[in-house]
Amino acid sequence: MPLNPEFIGKRYPDTDPYLIGREKIREFATAIGDSSPVFHSLDAARALGYPDLPAPPTFAFSLTMKAMATAMFDPELGLDYARVVHGEQGFEYKRPMTAGDEVVVKSFIADITARGRNEYLTTQADVVTVSGELLVSTRSIIASRGTAA
């Protein structure tokens, strides 16, 4: 079943504030196999001028994905989770998210298009501190396999 095109431009409520934790950053860096000292050692992070551990460059997706899930599981949109594949992901950074930052994600559906048998859902999600500082803008394209009209 095709996705509902009326959802283009739809904004979702800000996510609940998320406090970025030092151990979460270490856990994430370990899971991706990144042993860069700056993601594990406070001394290494401070030597580069960070107040605490900064997050690896793709960490933001763990937060934006949750915001996108709200959109993806909206039954009115008509997306079948079993057909979903991640198509593209882009990040534009203002500064690295750092342990101690408390952030929210602001997201909206930027586009829905069909190409061949697949449909593509583009969402834009910004990670912003609770005091309003933009840290990273992200753009995700999710492919919905075989649902084009």
Partner: peptide
């Protein structure tokens, strides 16, 4: 996960730049 692959590219970027603050943008199509 596409993001696992992109995270591996991120690791490679970190080997090049050493500081995540030097990465301005980073995108990939899976």
């Amino acid at each position: 996960h596409g993001m696992y692959t992109q995270a591996q590219l991120g690791r490679l970027l970190m080997e090049v730049v050493g500081d995540p603050g030097r990465i301005v943008s980073f995108s990939a199509r899976f």
